[in-house]
Lab assay of single mutants.
Amino acid sequence: MAAGGDHGSPDSYRSPLASRYASPEMCFVFSDRYKFRTWRQLWLWLAEAEQTLGLPITDEQIQEMKSNLENIDFKMAAEEEKRLRHDVMAHVHTFGHCCPKAAGIIHLGATSCYVGDNTDLIILRNALDLLLPKLARVISRLADFAKERASLPTLGFTHFQPAQLTTVGKRCCLWIQDLCMDLQNLKRVRDDLRFRGVKGTTGTQASFLQLFEGDDHKVEQLDKMVTEKAGFKRAFIITGQTYTRKVDIEVLSVLASLGASVHKICTDIRLLANLKEMEEPFEKQQIGSSAMPYKRNPMRSERCCSLARHLMTLVMDPLQTASVQWFERTLDDSANRRICLAEAFLTADTILNTLQNISEGLVVYPKVIERRIRQELPFMATENIIMAMVKAGGSRQDCHEKIRVLSQQAASVVKQEGGDNDLIERIQVDAYFSPIHSQLDHLLDPSSFTGRASQQVQRFLEEEVYPLLKPYESVMKVKAELCL
């Protein structure tokens, strides 16, 4: 049975990233139509530049190519590739079939990587351009969430054990800070992308030097003109047959890092959902379990974690691919890159769409948070109580021993009897502590235990987050809708 299948058929496997999760716009960027249309555009740009620099290419040939950029006979191309065992030459023939007058000058002087690699770089750039505003929107939604809850005390956790208090907004800023680093890295790697350009079979530009009869300047002009037509500021000066596969490492490393950030955020949300302090959106008709109707599973956060793990592992592909590119190139890269580049971007696209949807509907339960604080705060307040007693004339050592005994009794009630923490009640009825009984409410005010959390939130948002989001103001209103 021949390899390949009808990918629109229910009898043929289709990647869930495309069929179930990723956005239509990201799927289109990695589609065959987008790819092969870009090949034709690159052939047109090459012909236009070659004509401008004096090669015998007519206006009629150029116009014929322009008129057929979208006229792609995919069936013919597939048949040609089956016959020739070469995808680029299959599309040269297919393009030439609908451009008979231009057929002889299509791909003039070029090698397969002229269309293959340059198209990949265009796709990487455009895919990054799709991700950047999506990530900015996630940051914006979380920034709104953090600002609104900047002063809401909550129990902090280290080692997932109760620690000092923080605020809900401050905790959210930990998430935002990681995503801001990801946004900066995505922008950097996007701006650092260079075009492969017009380089020939081993990167020496020998074929173009021959076409222009040894004119170095025209060869350099050709490279520059096509690079500018493709919208790049610069091209690699040095290439082998391909652009260095280190570029793929750079791009997928940034995406993998984004995956790590999203995994951490969504894990926190899942843990908070278990504590009943916070939940992701839950639709009115949504079913959490087929057997347990009360369940409210954090399905979206779980999906993000599941896909983020996949995204983090994909960076190993370009690392290994770059390491086995012998001399000017081997074909070890080809099949692998067809999979890992598309999957990385479709996965990143999915987790950003999902995280935006989550961040637009996060639900906080202040009463649950308050109750958990009441359970733990008495123990945390013991040092403040000791200091207040010393100020009232008591002995630190005597007070410490009193607190120690009462704390152990209260802990026994919590752990052995399943009761509430009654340390404060014990202190309130103990005559030894009568000098500070009137101060206990103040000493137990949760806001006095959150330090500068709310001020940190305000400063972080104003100095770091809002300036970073400013270039994306025009796209901030787009909502994230999930079908599944």
Rank of each mutant, 00 (worst) to 15 (best):
S438V: 11
V254W: 07
L461Q: 04
F327R: 03
M89W: 01
N71R: 11
D223Y: 00
E279Q: 05
I269G: 03
E50V: 07
Y472F: 14
Q428I: 10
M380I: 05
V168E: 04
C266S: 10
C180S: 12
S454V: 12
E425N: 13
C172P: 05
A77T: 15
R371Q: 04
V414W: 05
S454H: 08
R404E: 02
D317Y: 00
R329I: 01
C173S: 11
G197F: 00
G104L: 12
P435K: 09
V414T: 05
D215S: 15
A273S: 13
Q184T: 14
E220T: 11
V168P: 05
G361I: 00
T154L: 08
S359G: 13
Q375T: 04
R149P: 01
K147F: 10
K295D: 00
T201S: 05
Y114N: 01
N68W: 08
S261I: 04
A49W: 04
I57Y: 00
A381G: 05
I424D: 07
S253I: 12
T242D: 07
P293Y: 03
S253A: 13
S253M: 15
V226H: 03
P100N: 09
M316H: 14
L423V: 04
L55I: 14
L331D: 01
S290V: 02
Q205G: 12
Q455C: 09
Q51E: 06
K276R: 08
P471A: 15
S447R: 14
W43D: 01
E464M: 06
E81I: 00
Q177I: 14
R83T: 12
F282H: 08
A260V: 05
P16C: 13
N357K: 05
R149F: 12
A273D: 10
A47P: 04
T244H: 15
E79Q: 12
A127V: 06
R83Y: 14
R83V: 11
A49F: 00
N384W: 05
A3E: 12
I339L: 13
Y34M: 08
M380N: 07
K415P: 04
F460V: 07
Q408I: 08
L423T: 03
L307K: 10
E279G: 06
T201W: 02
G240H: 08
L352A: 11
T158M: 01
D248A: 01
E70A: 12
F30D: 03
D191A: 09
V254T: 12
R149L: 09
S67I: 13
K66Q: 12
M181Q: 10
D430M: 09
Q184P: 11
D430W: 07
V88S: 09
V262W: 03
C304S: 10
K101E: 11
M225T: 06
T111Y: 01
P318H: 00
Y21V: 01
